[in-house]
Design a protein around this nucleic acid. Structure first.
Length: 827
DNA sequence: GCAAGGTC
């Protein structure tokens, strides 16, 4: 009986299918699928089934000095016991074992782990290794026809990484945690990948904090030819002879303005027309997929989780890949054929099939383990097999595949330079003359800017000259997908782990919000690491490790050479750290408190801090406790985020409650508590008015929520919701049906007529049960985007066409103004 | 209770 071992169940099943010609039987042992046919069995692991760790005697953080971990032995133990047990049973019955894990370094190590498990129960059985770049009939058959041996050097390279990561990560993590007295769930972690990533975020924050804005001026005017008006912007040549638009001296700006404003025409001095080819995008690797999903509003975590589900269900290929070149065995025409006649995806596929020749784009990276992410040709039904969100992501993958086999787009750019005395202005027009791939991939902007045909020497009317004073802006924070791209550029993390690293930073309390903002703790951890263990926050550590691993893989170095040297470096770091333990601990402790501080306690002057009760709910408590028992409530929905803005009355930071779609700004908790109480009485309580004379009143709770409730609370619990923000006006008009006064909410510019609170609540309930939107008819718009647009007040195509794209982009996360313009054009 | 890397 031959035993074939793969890296995952999915691969085991597909290999069984290919080698058995579809005739395999499957059974389940210990919760592990085993595929069997004609004298062969195939089983899938679940990635690593063993892990490295220190022996038990090192497990108590308080009993062991962190420095001792450097020379502690490192053991391998089973982490997936059922799989290891199954493998041992199957290995005993095997006469030959074939390792068919993924064709990359980690796959070789996972193969070696399987090898060790097999060898433990049978010292003799022949073990061979097969390698293939994709799980297709041809590749798999030829790999099994020409088997090889395990590459023990390559596996050892992976093991060196495991050991170095564990020793550095554990020793430094324990040191920082102990120094700050943070044991238990709130330990302070560092690592080769997470810490350089965190430093990236912290460095950007430092730049933002140190930023000193500079004032500059820009000048615009309107030019008109016949009935067409278009914008022109003043420019000049700077010292390097480059075109510049920003004027740095007010006097100069005023002088230009004076001249332009008093003239009513400008002369065309240059007309420059050129066409630009806009090549279609490359196939999706994990990073580019996350980026594209981010652009339509999905966090990295959510995008990957949906992609994994789509993969497991068989709709798309493996989502963890660095590859940007489709393999030879992918026939684009055949795949397009699968989509022909599909109600929403068919039209694009048909138009693509009309081309004479189909040549997919390719990227720079060609790897051996998995193809770029593409649809399999198995199409789910929207709302049936997959949710709306999943469909939106699925459609993105399908359309990206379409784009990679579509024609380039062609733009025509027209630049017109006009002159008034010695001053010049320019107008840039662009027109999409050949939409090409944009027809099948509607996720990029195709907005145009119209500038009419003019000729040199022509005089154009000049009106509405404006001088705008502006300020240079600090650099922007990294967004999640930009961070993942930067990690890839820096060579840290892998396609499978980068998005998890960001999640880890959130979980550890190092970053908050989206785009992520570092906490004070994060700044202190990066500070400490920079001062004492610079290596662990630098990308160099990974670069060096990669070199060392290559040396092990090629036989130039051994695992011991590399790990010994790494341990020595860490010894040196600890020699410097020892004396500064208290100082580092104080700084970390102070920063931890800073992250929770709202401001002075009005009762005792100590600090008010955001705290968590034993039941898990959040509240504001005094650092002087138990001497001072002052507390303030926080809303029960969401996780508090302390904002930078301060309340003018109490000097306390305002608080925002993070709760996904229901996120809201709570404000100053002390103001909210002071506002609590009963407001005006509206009328009779419909529940208990007849029997007990209960009345309805506007109420504000200490937590800041507002409602219309019965004055007999808690005996009568009748209540109706009210919005959290805005002043509530009680008008003289009464509802015919319920006899209550109509309410108007004043917030922002437009007062909102809420009406009778009972009618309002009934309408709200009706709307909740009947949601659905014509916005989903737009290409590339799914439930997620529809929800977000609705939050911004855009509930239909009509709303969308009337909206200001820039305002929408401002309000809706992950939607650019250009994208809104594209939708408007299509709507 | 540590890391990073697989996979679910």
């Amino acid at each position: 009986m031959e035993l074939i071992i793969t890296e995952k169940d999915n691969a085991a099943r597909r290999i069984a299918d290919i080698l058995s010609g579809g005739t395999y039987d499957s059974s389940r042992e210990n919760g592990v699928n085993v595929y069997e046919w004609g004298g062969k069995r195939c089983v899938g692991l679940s990635g690593h089934v063993v892990g490295v760790d220190f022996p038990d005697e090192y497990s108590d953080w308080r009993d062991v000095e962190p420095v001792e971990l450097i020379d502690a032995s490192v053991e391998k133990t089973a982490t997936k016991e059922n799989i290891v047990a199954t493998l041992r049973i199957l290995a005993r019955k095997a006469t030959r074992v074939t390792i068919a894990t993924d064709y990359d370094r980690e796959g070789e190590l996972i193969g070696k782990e399987a090898y060790d498990i097999v060898r433990d129960v049978d010292e003799e059985v022949p073990i061979r290794r097969v390698r293939f770049s994709s799980i297709t009939e041809n590749e798999v058959q030829s790999a099994f026809d020409d088997p090889d041996d395990l590459d023990f050097d390559l596996a050892a390279a992976g093991e060196a990484r495991q050991i170095i990561d564990l020793v550095w990560g554990a020793a430094l993590t324990r040191f920082l945690s102990l120094s700050a007295g943070q044991l238990g769930n709130d330990f302070i972690s560092v690592g080769r990948v997470q810490s350089p990533t965190l430093k990236l975020i912290v460095d950007r924050e430092r730049e933002i904090q140190a930023f000193d804005p500079e004032t500059y001026w820009e000048l615009f005017g309107d030019l008109t030819k016949e009935d067409t008006t278009f914008e022109a912007q003043y420019f000049y040549r700077d010292e390097d002879d480059n075109e510049a638009e920003r004027v740095w001296e007010e006097a100069v700006a005023d002088e230009v303005y004076e001249t332009l404003a008093e003239r009513d025409s400008a002369t065309v001095v240059d007309v420059n027309r050129r066409t630009r080819t806009d090549t279609p995008p490359e196939p999706f690797n994990t990073t580019q997929f996350i980026r594209a999903a981010g652009a339509i509003g999905y966090s990295a975590k959510r995008a990957m989780s949906i992609a994994e589900d789509l993969y497991t269900a068989g709709y798309i290929t493996y989502p963890r890949t660095d590859n940007t070149v489709y393999p030879d065995d992918l026939d684009p025409e055949e795949l397009l054929d699968d989509f022909v006649s599909h109600p929403t995806l068919g039209e694009s596929a048909e138009s693509l099939l009309e081309a004479d020749e189909i040549v997919p784009t390719e990227g720079d990276e060609e790897t051996t383990d998995h193809p770029p992410i593409h649809p399999t040709g198995e199409i789910p039904s929207r709302g049936g097999d997959v949710s709306d969100d999943e469909w939106e992501v699925y459609e993105l993958v399908v359309r990206r595949f379409y784009a990679t086999v579509a024609d380039a787009a062609v733009w025509e750019h027209l630049k017109v330079v006009t002159e008034v005395d010695d001053y010049r202005m320019k107008s840039n027009g662009k027109r999409l003359v050949e939409p090409g791939y944009h027809d099948v991939y509607p996720y990029f902007s195709t907005s145009e800017n119209y500038v009419p045909d003019v000729t040199e020497g022509e005089e154009l009317a000049l009106t509405d000259v404006e001088l705008e004073e502006k300020e240079t802006q600090p650099p922007r924070r990294y967004g999640q997908s930009r961070l993942i791209e930067t990690m890839e550029d820096m060579g840290i993390g892998t396609k499978s782990t980068r998005h998890n690293t960001l999640e880890k930073l959130y979980d550890r309390g190092y970053i908050e919000s989206d785009p992520p903002r570092p906490t004070k703790l994060a700044m202190a951890v990066v500070d400490a690491a920079e001062n004492y263990a610079d290596r662990v926050v630098s990308e160099e550590m990974t670069a060096q490790l990669e070199q060392d691993m290559d040396a092990i893989a090629s036989g130039e170095a051994t695992l011991d050479d590399v790990t010994d040297e790494s341990r020595e470096m860490l010894e040196e770091i600890f020699a410097n750290l020892a004396d500064s333990r208290d100082e580092i601990g104080d700084h970390l402790r102070k920063s931890l408190k800073d992250d929770k501080r709202l401001g002075p306690c009005p009762e005792c002057g100590e600090d008010l801090l955001v705290r968590r009760s034993r039941h898990g709910s959040y509240f504001v408590g005094c650092d002087g406790y138990p001497d001072c028992e002052n507390t303030l409530p926080l809303p029960s929905t969401g996780k508090p985020l302390i904002l930078e803005s301060e309340c003018e009355d109490h000097g306390l930071n305002e608080v925002k409650m993070l709760a996904g779609r229901q996120t809201f700004v709570h404000g100053c908790p002390l103001c909210k508590a002071e506002d609590a109480g009963e407001g005006p009485v509206l009328g009779t309580c419909p529940e208990c008015g007849d029997e007990h004379d209960g009345e309805l009143a506007v109420k504000t709770l200490q937590s800041g929520s507002r409602l219309v409730g019965c004055t007999r609370y808690p005996d009568c619990e009748y209540s109706l919701p009210l919005p959290r923000r805005g002043e509530i006006e009680v008008t003289d008009e009464r509802c015919d049906e319920h006899g209550l006064p109509e309410l108007v909410v004043h917030s922002g510019d437009d007062p909102w007529e809420l009406g009778c609170p009972i009618c309002n609540y009934q309408e709200f309930q009706a709307r909740e049960s009947d949601s659905g939107s014509d916005l989903e008819a737009l290409d590339g718009v799914g439930a997620k985007t529809v929800e977000k647009l609705a939050d911004a007040g855009i509930e239909s195509l009509d709303d969308l066409t009337e909206a200001d794209p820039d305002a929408v982009a401002e309000d809706v996360d992950g939607v650019s103004a250009d994208r809104v313009r594209t939708w408007q054009a299509k709507a």
